[in-house]
Design a protein around this nucleic acid. Structure first.
Length: 278
DNA sequence: TATGCGTTCTGCTAACATGA
DNA sequence: TCATGTTAGCAGAACGCATA
């Protein structure tokens, strides 16, 4: 499969464990109204947006705007082909264990850092997909990480400075969001800090500082994370060479791609491809 | 918001290993 | 021999942080 510049690999991944169901949806996806008897469902767009119908009301969820659906409540989800959405379904009893046995009462609407969630999902999925079936400890450990992350994120949402900053960026600083949108549209091209700062109507210094306060990483690190995500999809799904992929994604050289990929993923591109394809 | 400075990373190049 | 994957060295650019 060959990809042109700025094209995004469409895919839908579902991984089930005894206490969890992890979804990453990056293609058109719609469900009819349904309920889960025992599972909470947390739906979070990681880029673009989606339409979620719950509590007898339709919600247009933007990037980073999560929705917590309680068990036994009817709901439906609609994802367009231009968005990416992570859905986490967790068993009610298992969730309670990692919520310090406190009542499972959360706001339906939650702000969750899409970059952090995407990164964590990548790590969870890699562990679950590559683990040795004879070693259930890896699955249990990953379950614990997911449940702990959710318990902490949903319970501490009111005081999470980074999430608050993200909400701020989502609603108040439309210039910063415009810069973010620009980065998503042009991350395979050569970008300059001055260009992005100009879009956000900030000096380069203030832009970098503000960006990091909101997303927890520098603009360049954010661009790299987008490129690595796309590189992993192409390594898994296409027959393109590593050199071709590094060039298509805007890396200045193959060596830079190797270094960034190895640091981010913990394996060389070829090792990653072999691991995914078995 | 800007500056200075030390640290980290990138881009380029060359070289080596491996397999067809 | 050639294509591809991988690694290392070096100069310059970008970044982080303290400070004004």
């Amino acid at each position: 499969m060959a990809y042109g510049r700025n094209e995004v690999a469409r895919m839908k991944i579902r991984i089930d464990t005894p206490r969890l169901s992890l979804w990453r949806i990056e293609e058109e996806h719609s469900t009819a109204p349904h309920i889960h008897e025992r599972e909470f469902q947390i739906t979070v767009p990681i880029y673009g947006g989606c339409r979620f119908v719950g509590k007898q009301q339709a919600y247009e969820l933007a990037c980073g705007e999560g929705f917590v659906q309680y068990p036994e409540e009817p709901h439906e989800l609609h994802v367009s082909g231009e968005a990416g959405v992570i859905v986490l379904q967790v068993d009610r009893d298992g969730f309670a264990e990692f919520n310090d046995r406190q009542p499972l009462e959360f706001d339906h609407r939650q702000s969750i850092d899409p970059v952090e969630l995407s990164g964590r999902f990548r790590k969870w999925a890699t562990t679950l997909l590559l683990h040795d079936p004879s070693e259930p400890l890896a699955v249990e450990e990953t379950e614990a990480q997911v449940l702990s992350f959710l318990a902490r994120s949903l319970r501490g949402n009111q005081t999470n400075r980074r999430d608050a900053a993200l909400v701020s960026a989502s609603s108040a600083d439309r210039h910063m969001r415009t810069a973010l949108d620009y980065m998503h549209e042009h991350y395979t091209e050569k970008l300059h800090i001055d260009t992005l700062a100009g879009i956000a109507l900030l000096s380069r210094f203030h832009f970098i500082r503000t960006f990091k306060a909101i997303l927890g990483m520098t603009p360049y690190q954010y661009i790299l994370s987008l490129r690595i995500e796309e590189a992993k999809a192409r390594l898994a799904r296409s027959g393109a060479t590593v050199t071709e992929i590094s060039h298509d994604l805007g890396f200045g050289s193959a060596s830079q791609f190797y270094r960034v990929f190895a640091k981010s993923v913990g394996a060389t591109p070829e090792q990653y491809r072999s691991g995914v394809r078995g």
